[in-house]
């Protein structure tokens, strides 16, 4: 479904991704794990068109994503739940959700989708008219996920969804991600929280210093000696 082939990405003169290739198949949950600064977020931002690869290609279904302007990518069914949530703080929960459904395909089903999102997160229905800047971190993350789902995506990408959340909320977010997957949405997740992420994903890729170091199923990676040593501290 999503095929990233040999991309190199630069910030100015600084190369941050070297020859990165991976793929996400329809219905899968795929994880990109790695330490801070490994280039995980850069990959997601490149898929969303916020960065452009200097070499290589990114294909989604039969589209060349690297040639599409960033604001048009969501129309093709890719939602990006950004790192740090990036909500619109002076808008209500409802308005933030509406902002997720601007493209015509999603707009046509806006009310229906919103009911579905409120079903997933009953808490948000209670807070519907509250400004998102005043919500707790966990609630804000729910809005961010809900806003992504409002686009009715075929592929949803999460960038560090557990960042800054208490362990109990982290568990809840992971549960929700599994639920989204059961609804038939393909998931690409970027995380530092290696163990929990590998437990819920089908396949994972390990990123170090801007290069893909390892890949395999979630279980394989959990049992890998390098992973155990470097990430799980076992």
């Amino acid at each position: 479904m999503l095929k990233v082939e040999n991309i190199d990405v630069f910030y100015g003169d600084l190369q941050v991704l070297w020859d990165v290739s991976f793929e996400v198949k329809e219905g899968e949950t795929v994880a990109l794990v790695g330490a801070n600064g490994a280039g995980k977020s850069t990959i997601i931002k490149t898929i969303s068109g916020l960065n452009r690869p200097a070499n290589g290609s990114i294909r989604f279904l039969d589209l060349h994503l690297d040639k599409i302007p960033s604001h048009k990518i969501i129309e093709h069914g890719i939602a990006h739940v950004p790192e740090g949530r990036r909500l619109f703080p002076e808008m209500t929960v409802r308005e933030n959700l509406i902002m997720g459904s601007l493209c015509p395909r999603a707009k046509a089903k806006r009310d229906e989708t919103m009911e579905w999102v409120f079903g997933l997160f009953p808490r948000l229905r209670e807070r519907e008219k509250q400004l998102t800047g005043t919500l707790s971190g966990g609630e804000q993350q729910m809005v961010a996920v809900g806003r992504g789902l409002m686009a009715l995506p075929k592929l949803i990408m999460f960038d560090e969804p557990s960042l800054g959340l208490a362990p109990i909320l982290v568990a809840e977010i992971f549960k929700i991600i599994q639920r989204i997957r059961q609804e038939g949405v393909t998931v690409l997740i970027v995380e530092q929280n290696t163990k929990q992420t590998l437990e819920i994903c089908d396949r994972g890729y390990v990123l170090e210093n801007g290069r893909i170091l390892l890949s395999g199923t979630g279980q394989e990676l959990l049992n890998n000696d390098h992973i155990k040593q470097a990430y799980l501290g076992i």
Partner: peptide, 16 residues
């Protein structure tokens, strides 16, 4: 309003 509050997030939502 969204662009004024967070331009990059607005672009991700499909705002030109």
């Amino acid at each position: 309003r969204a662009t004024a509050q967070d331009k990059e997030a607005a672009i991700l939502m499909g705002v030109n």
